[in-house]
């Protein structure tokens, strides 16, 4: 179990989200060589350290967001997150 800090929903169990993976930039498909395109597809840093990654809030707000997580300890760093409390009557 991992509490993932969704910037819209607040802390959520990881089972409510999908781990998309390391945040990587996509090369220009028209300019990239096949080798560049394949390294974009397959190669990852896979560090045992702080890493910026993308999550998708499947069961919650359905937003993609980036967050920094330490893959050795599973801590999140400075998550841009609202509190636990959910809205209520306006």
């Amino acid at each position: 179990m991992l509490l993932v800090p969704c910037p819209y929903c607040g802390p959520r169990n990881s089972s409510d989200l999908r781990h998309v993976g390391e945040a990587i930039s996509r090369p220009d498909p028209n300019a990239a060589s096949p080798e560049q395109w394949r390294s974009y597809l397959y190669l990852r840093d896979n560090v045992a350290d702080w890493n910026v990654e993308t999550w998708y809030c499947t069961r919650g707000c359905r937003k993609y967001f980036k967050v920094e997580r330490n893959t050795a300890t599973n801590e999140f760093r400075d998550p841009p997150m609202p509190g636990n409390k959910i809205g209520g009557k306006a």
Binding site: M1, L2, N13, S15, H19, N46, R69, T71, A72, N74
Partner: peptide, 13 residues
């Protein structure tokens, strides 16, 4: 487990 990491802790999920 559904996300990359170097931890070998078990989970309730």
């Amino acid at each position: 487990d559904p996300f990359t990491n170097y931890n070998v802790r078990g989970s309730l999920d």
